[in-house]
Design a protein around this nucleic acid. Structure first.
Lengths: 151, 151
DNA sequence: ACCAACTAGTGCGATATCGTACTAATGTCA
DNA sequence: TGACATTAGTACGATATCGCACTAGTTGGT
């Protein structure tokens, strides 16, 4: 591959890395101190797709290492936003349940993000980026599949 | 904004976050231990656009906080890949210069990344994603502009 | 029923990220 | 020129990320 072709991929991942960084910082600026994007994302995930899932299942949904998820869940539990209960089907495992505070927290967080999302939507109308999500998902799937393959 | 509209933006930034994470991990797996993507990116930046820049200029090019850049540059200097010299135009400031090892290191790193890039290019031909880069750059610019604005 | 291979979760350690606060130097404006 | 605001870089501290290695529990083949 020549320098031109290489540069396209570098540029792509560079933009993606910067957007991830900037969007994360913007999100966290609207969340209470100590609450990170992963914290919120997990709450949101559980509200949208249902709670009672295992830590590993949640980690996989975010393509995140399970050790990172342990840490994120510990933070949520310490703040009373989730409760971890033993998994009756597998004694090694646990199930993650939302608490009342957890649900309320997620709703309030979304309320606080609303003005920024609205401002963003004004500059970037949904229809202008709707096709982006499936295309990015395709790239994500390719990278994810390549993860445990031979060199 | 309703739940549907919100979800589109959440999905977008979620995909971007995951891609950033996966691509970063894949990159770093091909770099020597202790060398991170930011390390490589800075070397690559200096080779492509010229060295002798100040730390702050480099930080801005990556939309990164200057404290993070201090840390990244310290790592590169400790490994002998760059040299920091005083800036003759401003005694507060410094200039970052590539060493011979730095240039060689960057070339070798690209060589090690080559097989993965080629494999990626097979699954994601350049023409299928060429339009993605400017569209992401637009999003990046919007987020960057929103950074220091009032709530 | 047994034992080996595997799996879920976590403790630990190394390192990255980045905000705050500081120092030294520069710019500005009267 | 003097005083004040601004800027470049860094030290420091708090926290996030994540690989390795370990424990407890499960599974599958015999």
């Amino acid at each position: 591959m020549d320098s031109q072709g290489r540069h396209l991929y570098f540029a792509l991942f560079n933009e993606i890395g910067i957007i991830a960084q900037l969007s994360r910082a913007a999100f966290e600026a609207r969340l209470p101190p100590g609450i990170t994007v992963p914290h919120f994302s997990v709450l949101n995930h559980l509200v949208r797709l249902g709670d009672g899932r295992t830590p590993l299942a949640i980690a996989r949904a975010f393509q995140a290492p399970k050790t990172s998820m342990t840490h994120t869940l510990a933070g949520l539990e310490a703040r009373g936003l989730i409760a971890m209960r033993p998994n009756p089907k597998d004694k090694r495992s646990k199930c993650v349940w939302l608490t009342e505070q957890g649900r309320r927290f997620r709703d309030e967080a979304i309320g606080r993000l609303e003005p920024d999302l609205a401002a963003l939507a004004r500059q970037l109308p949904p229809e202008r980026l709707a096709d982006l999500v499936p295309r990015l998902a395709e790239i994500r799937a390719i990278l994810d599949a390549a993860r445990d393959e031979p060199a």
